[in-house]
Amino acid sequence: MTSTITAGSAVSAGPAPSPSFPARRRGSSLGRKRIEIALFAGPALLVYVAFVLVPVVLAAVYSFYKWNGYGPIQDFIGLENYRRALSDPVFLSAIGHNLFVVVLSLVVQGPIAIGIALLLNRKLRGRTFFRVIIFIPYVLSEVIAGLSWKLLLQPDGPFDSFLRSIGLGSLKHLWLADSNIVLWTVFAILTWKYVGFAIILFLAGLQSVPAELEEAGRIDGASWWQIQRYITLPLLGPTIRIWAFLSIIGSLQLFDMVWVVTGGGPAGATTTMASYMVQYGFQRNQLGFGSAVAVILFIISLVFALLYQRFVLRRDLQGSLTRGVG
């Protein structure tokens, strides 16, 4: 509500449309403001309500029923679907897999991306070329990339041959078939796919670090490392915090890469909350149960997003999103 009012007053505070009809202007300005609000916010609001709010509410309703998707919804079972999901070891391990990817993404992808971004921000021969190369995996379609990796990582497949050809044949593993390794394999593929996006974000963030500060640091005798550590990185903070936010949400909702490469297998070793939802909701025709899983995934993501905004992004977002809330 705050934001719409701000937008409205900003509009009316703008340059007067026509000074020659002062009397009519006052009478129509309120109506005009409403039309403007309706025109600008209306379509987006409609789409949002129809495709986000209504489905979320419907999913919440379905989650209290036993429903195979056919026929009327009438078998009300209360919280039974939630009880079943939260007591299913497969679902609990799926949550564990999501958290594994969340933590590893932050700990591994973050430093790699920051390092490469700092490197690519220096004057370097072929800098544009490297920037493009690094961004390519992110542009590839998820399914194409996933299928390619699936075929590359077959036992004695192209990847193993490659290892042998460079004398690392002893590193050969059953990359996708060994349930102790497969989650790491999936994580490596995710890193390959998404680190480029992080790097581009950080590179953009680095552009907003004032060159004067670095210059001043250099004049005061700071080394390159000191400049990065005490000037660039702190100023990159907002970008890092936004990236971490996107990365965590993406990891919590991880689905497509897992589905294409492993299908959640072998034996549930890479099941995520979202792949569990599709497997149980759609493939097993239990839409009520699937909805309950969806609601749990939604609540976990929402709670996390709100907490993160409240405590981590508070300063970054000051004056925009959190005004009036924080």
């Binding site: 059953l174 996708l176 078939a177 060994d178």
Partner: peptide, 8 residues
Amino acid sequence: QDGFLATP
């Protein structure tokens, strides 16, 4: 065969 758990 080797790695049958992930073989399509």
